[in-house]
Amino acid sequence: MSFAERFSCLVCPGDAITCEADGFTVTARIVPDDCPDAPDKRQEGFWPSLYINDPGFIGPGPNHRERLAKAKAEADATMEAWCKGDWFYCGIVLSVSFEGIELARHAASLWGVEANYPGSDNACLTEVADGLLSEALKTACEAAERLCVAYRQVRAHVDTA
């Protein structure tokens, strides 16, 4: 199972894709990540380095200064684009409904996903949604079972009254 619909190459918070799976309607939506940290604070090794013990070590080999300059320019451009709001971190949140009844508004999610990242086509957003699909369906089935139990209890009470 997977989403046939794909997130577009330029997304905004609130954008969503939908699929049908095992009789359920599953919606994956983009929600802004509430962590305000910049990329260099969130990603260890964001800034490239020539020092072997640094997380951003670019590795040994020829042309290390040129590779460092290129990696630094890419990091600078990525940081500048983030500061301008060209890309952002988000959560991919899946909700599940059955015949128009929402069973789980937050059935599964993954946070800290890069949306509109420079040079990206946002394919990773749909891949994340696909990866969360089975978890969301499991959560929805559990919610449906709880509703059925509650319904039986109410129905039994009504029938005896």
Rank of each mutant, 00 (worst) to 15 (best):
R105P: 09
R152M: 09
A161I: 12
F3Q: 06
A4Q: 13
H64R: 15
Y89R: 13
V93A: 06
A71S: 09
C148R: 08
Y117P: 04
Y117Q: 13
G23F: 02
R29C: 05
P32C: 09
A129P: 14
K41Q: 12
C90G: 11
M79A: 14
I101P: 03
S8K: 10
G14Y: 11
F7I: 07
T27W: 01
A28L: 10
D15Q: 01
I92G: 03
A136W: 01
A108V: 03
W47K: 09
A38H: 06
L50E: 08
I92V: 15
N116A: 03
E66V: 14
W47N: 13
E145F: 01
N122V: 07
A161M: 14
H106G: 04
A4T: 15
D121T: 06
P32E: 09
L103F: 01
I58V: 04
E142T: 05
F57K: 00
C90L: 05
K72M: 11
A81T: 11
G61K: 11
E102R: 02
A123I: 01
M79T: 09
A115S: 13
R67V: 14
C124W: 01
C124G: 02
A75F: 10
E74K: 14
V158A: 12
R29G: 04
A144H: 07
F24T: 01
A104S: 15
P39C: 05
S2Y: 00
L103T: 02
N116D: 10
S49C: 09
C141M: 09
N63Y: 13
D76Y: 07
E99D: 13
Y89H: 14
P62Q: 12
G131D: 04
H106R: 14
M79R: 11
D159A: 06
F24S: 01
W82F: 12
S120A: 14
N63C: 15
Q43N: 03
E102C: 05
